[in-house]
């Protein structure tokens, strides 16, 4: 069975040939990924393998840099750089902060 990333030769719709510039958030993730790469913590191959391991549902639902974020999270936990507990706690904190400052899309206030 093909992995979710293995799409070469499959059918699909028209290509959206418009080039959409990266958002602020996407640039942040690209920069963060490059920074952990530059210190040798996570390399390109590990990132790619972790993205491919997301499974069909997550891979096909998430946007490109959302996949990178999910992969980076997994790798940082696997390598002992961060723990799931501290990530969960920080996510809750960031969510509260963004809700308070009005930067959160409505409906995102709770998990």
């Amino acid at each position: 069975m093909r992995g979710p990333h293995d799409v070469g030769g499959l059918q699909d719709g028209p290509v959206d040939t418009e080039a959409h510039p990266l958002t602020f958030w996407e640039k942040q993730i690209d920069g963060l990924r490059a920074a952990v790469g530059a210190i040798g913590l996570v390399n390109t191959h590990e990132n790619r393998a972790a993205v491919e391991a997301l499974g069909h549902d997550a891979y096909n639902t998430l946007a490109y840099y959302e996949r990178w974020t999910a992969a980076l999270c997994r790798l940082l936990i696997d390598k002992g750089a961060l723990t799931q507990d501290e990530i969960d706690a920080r996510v809750a904190l960031v969510r509260q902060r963004l809700a308070a400052s009005g930067e959160l899309e409505s409906g995102m206030e709770s998990p």
Binding site: Q28, L32, V36, I39, L41, A63, T69, R90, E105, M108
Partner: peptide, 26 residues
């Protein structure tokens, strides 16, 4: 929309960046 945080993964990305900086990893 670009202007508001609209997905769990955006929140997660912000959280990862903050934690890595606080721990001095980057």
């Amino acid at each position: 929309p670009d202007d508001k945080v609209h997905s769990y993964y955006q929140i997660l990305g912000i959280a990862l960046k903050e934690l890595l900086i606080e721990k001095g990893v980057v």
